[in-house]
Design a protein around this nucleic acid. Structure first.
Length: 599
DNA sequence: AAATGAGTTGCTGAG
DNA sequence: TCTCAGCAACTCATT
């Protein structure tokens, strides 16, 4: 099962219902190389597509539009990924990124009313002839760090997509199958399914509950609820285009406007429509900032904070890069990083693998890895923990992991939220720190989420389930678990043999160290576009501020496990951290790759 | 123009 | 069970 394939199959079925001769015709080749051949072979007169504001997509769309022009093909574009057209929002906001919900609302209102969704077509014309008298070009894959490769089976990574020919294994332009992509069907562990039919059904069910819809307040929804979840779980549908955000918005507005319950409906930003506004805020912010939005360097709106494990900067943005578009973007390295501290690297690996020794953090990270979705507030906790509230690891590391694992991954929302939680941008109250113990307890005193996703602790008394290292020997014995190990071993600390790792640090101590470091970073006040952030002279400023917790300052005294930063560095590439990577099937690798550019 | 209040989502402990 | 001050103190919008 795979949400992406669900969506394509469902769309194809819907098209076929309108015209049995038609369906979704899938061609296995990058548009940059395919379209010029197709324009000619199929006598194409019009090319219609939806614009997209992600850095990769902008480059691709530019190339495709240029190719169409050259071939005399008329290009028609539409935009419906957000409530308002993000570029229009930016224009109304003076070309600047929308950095708060008030700014987004003001700029959006200046653009005008949120467009009403248009109905699906009632009929479709027959498809024309589709001759394939041309060669297939495989995309360049040199140096391409394919996130899905470890999940494939069979030789050559098991990817048959481009060997099957342009029209697929049966030559009928069918939607690709998991088999064709090289995935054993059992590899996908997510219970979440996709497709427009399911999404619209869910939307109907949610809207039918007027009380839930009209009084929805995000901060009041539980991050620990899993059956059912406390929020709509429609974000993957928005991501895959199976649900229009404008349809969602106007359906919700209708319910809200009609609501006469006591206390009245909830309002943005906490309400359901408010959640869609936040999405627009991040999209518009990215539309204004461009490619540097997903990184610190070159981003004037993102604070420079000398976190551990900074991204290596390997590429320089050039016109040639832009013109090369998708193929080369995908071929570039994906976010390698410097291991400035072996300890931070171990913390990062344990965080990513769900073996930090803090059960609520581990439960969430394992839920994310297995199912591809966790509640927004759960994302808050684990993001705060990795960055300003524990590990002091760069938010770009966390964003990379989320990009890989999330079914609802949007580059703009992901980068924006990581900046928010790390207090690098959008949010600045860094002294509000989530506790890996208290936060979960507040929502889930019995520890049901932990029992579900950290089964080795399932039988532990609720009094100790958030802090098993404090449990008396008797309680642990009764629960059949030993608290032992560093969470990076090859088996015993993952739960086999009834063990659970020790906490990887004293949280109160780390909280204090991080707070002091954040205070220093705020007083220094550099941003990503500052020359000193790039040339290394930032270090003097932080030393003057009396700060020691920072990038490049080794905190590994007393380390005796033989792992040194220099050794670790060579192994560290995205997709290799943590363990148990064979989980959720990831969709569409193109938009998962984040290039950290030298600006 | 300086001051004030608000900001989707912190934690702890007292009353 | 709930509310609130204290913790230490950021940025933005409004007045």
């Amino acid at each position: 099962m795979s949400i992406g394939l669900d969506c394509q199959n469902d769309l194809s079925d819907s098209i076929q219902k309108l015209n049995p001769k038609s369906k979704l015709f899938v061609l296995r080749e990058a548009p940059q190389t395919l379209f010029p051949k197709l324009f000619k072979a199929w006598n194409v007169t019009h090319l219609v597509f939806e614009r997209d504001t992600d850095a990769y997509a902008r480059g691709r769309d530019l190339v495709v539009t240029e190719l169409a022009k050259k071939a005399g093909v008329e290009v028609i574009t539409r935009y419906g990924r957000t409530l308002w057209d993000s570029d229009e929002v930016v224009a109304k906001h003076g070309g600047k990124p929308t950095m708060s919900i008030t700014q987004l609302q003001a700029a959006g209102n200046a653009v005008g009313d949120i467009p009403k969704p248009i109905p699906a077509p009632a009929h479709l014309p027959d498809p024309g002839d589709m001759p394939l008298d041309f060669e297939q070009d495989k995309p360049t894959t040199a140096g391409f760090d394919d996130l899905n490769a470890p999940h494939r089976s069979g030789g050559d990574n098991g990817d048959n997509t481009y060997r099957a020919g342009i029209a697929g294994m049966s030559g009928d332009f069918a939607v690709e199958t998991l088999e064709e992509l090289g995935f054993p069907a059992a590899a996908a562990t997510t219970p979440h399914r996709g497709g427009e039919t399911i999404a619209l059904g869910k939307l109907d069910a949610i809207m039918a509950d007027a009380e839930y819809t009209a009084t929805f307040r995000k901060p009041q929804t539980s991050p620990a609820a899993f059956e059912p979840q406390s929020t709509t779980l429609l974000s993957p549908a928005l991501h895959f285009g199976a649900l229009s955000p404008r349809l969602f918005y106007w359906r919700a507005r209708t319910v809200v406007d009609a609501y006469r319950g006591k206390g009245g409906p909830s309002k943005p930003p906490e309400s359901l429509t408010g959640q869609l506004l936040f999405r627009d805020m991040y999209f518009a912010a990215q539309a204004a900032v461009g490619a540097p939005f997903t990184q610190t360097l070159g981003n004037a709106h993102c604070r420079f904070i000398p976190w551990h494990l900074p991204s290596k900067i390997t590429a320089t943005a050039t016109t040639a890069d832009e013109e090369a578009g998708a193929v080369d973007a995908a071929a570039s390295n994906t976010s390698p990083y410097d291991v400035d501290s072996a300890q931070a690297e171990r913390w990062f690996r344990r965080w990513a693998g769900g073996t930090t020794g803090f059960p609520f953090v581990d439960a969430l990270m394992r839920q994310l890895r297995r199912e591809g979705w966790i509640h927004h507030l759960g994302r808050h906790l684990v993001a705060c923990f990795l960055t300003r509230g524990g590990c002091y690891v760069h938010w770009e590391r966390g964003a990379d992991v989320f990009a890989e694992l999330l079914l609802d991954h949007e580059p703009a929302c992901n980068a924006g939220n990581w900046q928010w939680l790390s207090c690098a941008a959008f949010y600045s109250q860094y002294y509000r720190v989530y506790s890996p113990v208290a936060f979960g307890k507040k929502w889930d005193p019995r520890g049901d989420l932990i029992r579900r996703y950290v089964p080795e602790l399932a039988a532990l008394d609720a009094r100790y389930i958030y802090e098993p290292w404090k449990a008396p020997g008797k309680a642990l014995e009764e629960a059949g678990v030993r608290v032992v190990g560093d969470g990076l071993g090859e088996g015993e600390e993952k739960g086999e043999g009834g063990t659970y790792p020790e906490p990887m640090f004293d949280f109160a101590e780390r909280r204090g160290a991080c707070l002091a470091a954040m205070k220093a970073a705020y007083s220094v006040g550099l941003h990503g576009d500052d020359e000193r952030a790039r040339d290394g002279t930032w270090r003097e400023l932080f030393e003057q501020a009396g700060q020691t917790e920072m990038q490049g300052n080794f905190d590994d005294a007393g380390d005796d496990d033989g792992e040194h930063a220099d050794d670790a560095e060579h192994e560290v590439r995205r997709g290799k951290h943590g363990r148990g990577m064979s989980d959720t099937i990831r969709e569409g690798p193109m938009d998962r790759h984040v290039k950290r550019l030298k600006i």
